[in-house]
Design a protein around this nucleic acid. Sequence first.
DNA 1: TTGACATGTGACCTTTTGGTCACCTAACTT
DNA 2: AAGTTAGGTGACCAAAAGGTCACATGTCAA
Lengths: 106, 106
Amino acid sequence: MADDDRVFKALADPTRRLLLDLLFAREGRTLTELESEVAMTRFGVAKHLKVLEEAGLVVTRRSGREKLHFLNPVPIRLIHDRWIDKYTERHVTALVDLKKALEDEP
Amino acid sequence: MADDDRVFKALADPTRRLLLDLLFAREGRTLTELESEVAMTRFGVAKHLKVLEEAGLVVTRRSGREKLHFLNPVPIRLIHDRWIDKYTERHVTALVDLKKALEDEP
DNA sequence: TTGACATGTGACCTTTTGGTCACCTAACTT
DNA sequence: AAGTTAGGTGACCAAAAGGTCACATGTCAA
């Protein structure tokens, strides 16, 4: 499977995105800790984490019998760069910021 | 289905990403024109374009019996903003640029 | 060293997704 | 008006993905 294909397939599942959100909020979590937040058995969570790791979206470090998980933002940035060139980026960010501002103050 | 779910699901398929690449290179293409580039029947391509449109990644404009397709970069930017904060962005872009430079000059 | 804890593996089943086809409507051309 | 061109719909089948379980390994603590 191609490298970028793994990334996009990994991002396609809502549970996996939630796991990324959890790691974005606080990194270095274990499987057991993540399991307690996602309404699914440990096996399901482990499978999802494996997919994320093979996609390079999550990197891990072993510490004794625990495995710590960290979010890797690089593949996300590459998605961005694929369809948003430097010139367009200025317009898009302005647009997104405007949209957010309008939503915050109705 | 949630809004962001549609976007990520849409991006999960390689043919749909190719369609986005084609529209990124040159916008305003018709179904028939896109069909000629993707080794698939018209029906398959039409289905993929529908998924992209419902996700908001592609916007369309009718012109007579033709339907013109355009890439919308906003959802892509939102993916970026979800997991890369302003502070991290500086480090990540630097890292990505360095990686690209190293790949270009071996 | 015994038991509890943290994680890994392969089989299994159900649901979702990708692709094609027969058939259809709408618009341009002559 | 008739033929051609651009696109849309719903049914269908094969392949892939999501989730759970029985079973297994390695690590810590008393």
